[in-house]
Amino acid sequence: MRRPVLAFQSLDTTMLGWPAMSETTPEQDPRRLAEEARDRVHFEEEALALADQVYRVARRLVSTREEAEDLMQETYARAFRAWRSFQPGTNLRAWLLRILTNLNIDRGRRQQRSPDLQPLEEGDYYLYNRLEETGREPNNDQDRVDERLSQDDVVSALSAVPHDFRDVIVLVDIGDFSYADAAQILEIPIGTVMSRLHRGRRILKKELAEQTVETA
């Protein structure tokens, strides 16, 4: 079943061209003020309830825990300031992640080389074949993937994937976002999400295969 496509109308250029976002106060009407305060509290509580999920994605988008914590605090500070830009009923988690990924990119990742320039010879079957070659038949219940790879292997392999590919893998495979959501969050075409995901997973499997061979 396809997941619903996000509505991001509320973000438009205000979310992209920081800090040009509206922070106008409502009319000085006590009833309006009370409604606004209630809506804001509701928004903040919902955003905080999603913090664990947002952190899991943030942690794998950056190298260190300290960077992830800084990024989270910047993201939430910005989200709380820009809460009126969020359209109720749309995907708040994706909205927060869009802020977070924009902030992360603004931190200097634009200097990175074009992802399409990196050659990659191995295909999708590389890890599968390497596991077979090391005498460990894949897809055998007696010898499961998680018994051949450690958590450190995965973290290390993921960190070796170039940022542009890793962002997509983290959003889709760890954040559980759809291709369409990831495209909206990263502001790239859905076809680019799919190609980066495909290529990024190949790189990840190649890294895992190399670590598997090293430890065999």
Partner: peptide, 11 residues
């Protein structure tokens, strides 16, 4: 496995 291994809980 990647999903489970990559998760680090928020401090």
């Amino acid at each position: 496995f990647v999903r489970q291994a990559a998760v680090e809980e928020m401090p």
